[in-house]
């Protein structure tokens, strides 16, 4: 059954879209990430124009983050003060990201930056995650118990910076600079690449700020939710590329898929999950690396600069 997408101005199979949302939702439920980094490239591959894909996925990520954020909120797994700092800096980053998005689009280098961005960030995060997870799995085998990997020390160089703020819920007393930098960076990348950024934010909060594991997922979900909500509105106003029909179809699939993902996640250990997620992240990075390194089958591409007459 074909579904016409009024903003993308093309028809796609309804079941394919719901299925795509469902598959990505399954993964996001399994790993606790938004799944934007998988969904956006897949939509572009399906023929949806990159600007529409990026902007509509931000709407989908909002829905995917909401149910998770709510359940963590009920369990008290959110540090509101930390989230607020991350959100305020993140919205500033998102403003910059949406502006850069428009500039690159008219310069014809948006594809390159998206490819490079995905390659660098997914590649480095994926590699780090994989190393960490494999180490943890090996340790688990040797010791035979399932103790969580202990982080080396409570403090690192980040904790020596000035302008410290106390985050009671996270049991942290840390400089606001790394917090603002992380928040702003995620907001910038998220709006530019059409990703929630949870998979970058979670490791950054754990490894740089030493936020406790019980708080980190809920807080990052709330941050992603707020930033993506702001980005959706920014894209809607700035480029009018948010396709509500596409976003709604994707989010319907993804919230259902996420439920199965959560159940499936209970059968896997944390380190195995992280290794699996790292492999998926790396696969997407490799896919982008190939598109940059291999001789393109068609060196020419076409883009519409000023939109054709409405009606």
């Amino acid at each position: 059954m074909q579904l016409y997408l009024p903003i993308a101005e093309l028809s796609l199979n309804l079941f394919m879209l719901v299925g795509l949302g469902g598959a990505v939702g399954f993964l996001s439920g399994l790993f606790g990430v938004g799944g934007g980094f998988l969904l956006t490239p897949m939509l572009i591959f399906s023929g949806i124009p990159a600007p529409v894909a990026v902007a509509s996925v931000t709407g989908q990520v909002v829905a995917a983050s909401t149910s998770g954020a709510l359940s963590y909120w009920r369990r008290g797994g959110i540090d509101l003060k930390l989230a607020l700092f991350l959100i305020v800096s993140g919205v500033c980053g998102a403003f910059l990201g949406v502006w850069t998005f428009g500039q690159l689009r008219s310069a014809g280098q948006l594809d390159l930056v998206i490819s490079l961005g995905y390659l660098i960030f997914l590649g480095s995060i994926g590699t780090l995650m994989l190393i960490e997870a494999v180490r943890s799995i090996i340790k688990h085998r040797q010791q035979g118990d399932s103790r969580p990997t202990k982080l080396p020390g409570k403090h690192n160089w980040v904790h020596g910076l000035p302008f410290r703020v106390r985050f009671k819920r996270s049991n942290l007393y840390v400089s606001i600079f790394p917090v603002i930098l992380i928040g702003g960076g995620i907001g910038f990348l998220g709006s530019l690449l059409g990703i929630g950024g949870g998979f970058i934010l979670v490791p950054a909060l754990i490894y740089l700020l030493r936020v406790p594991g019980s708080i980190v997922i809920g807080t990052s979900l709330l941050q992603v939710l707020a930033i993506m909500a702001a980005t959706t509105i920014l894209h809607a106003v700035n480029s009018q590329t948010v396709d509500i029909v596409l976003a709604f179809t994707l989010m319907t699939g993804s919230v259902i898929g996420a439920q199965f993902g959560v159940s499936a996640g209970q059968y896997l250990r944390g380190d195995q999950l992280r290794a699996l997620l790292a492999l998926i992240v790396l696969a997407v990075a490799v896919r982008f690396a190939l598109s940059l390194l291999l001789t393109p089958s068609d060196p020419f591409s076409v883009a519409v600069l000023s939109s054709v007459g409405g009606g």
């Binding site: 709407g59 989908q60 909002v62 829905a63 995917a64 983050s65 909401t66 149910s67 709510l70 939710l225 909500a229 959706t232 509105i233 809607a236 948010v242 509500i244 976003a247 709604f248 989010m251 319907t252 919230v255 259902i256 996420a258 439920q259």
Partner: peptide, 12 residues
């Protein structure tokens, strides 16, 4: 769009 997304997430 955002309200719809939050509502969908909440409903699920």
């Amino acid at each position: 769009c955002v309200i719809l997304a939050i509502f969908t997430g909440w409903l699920s």
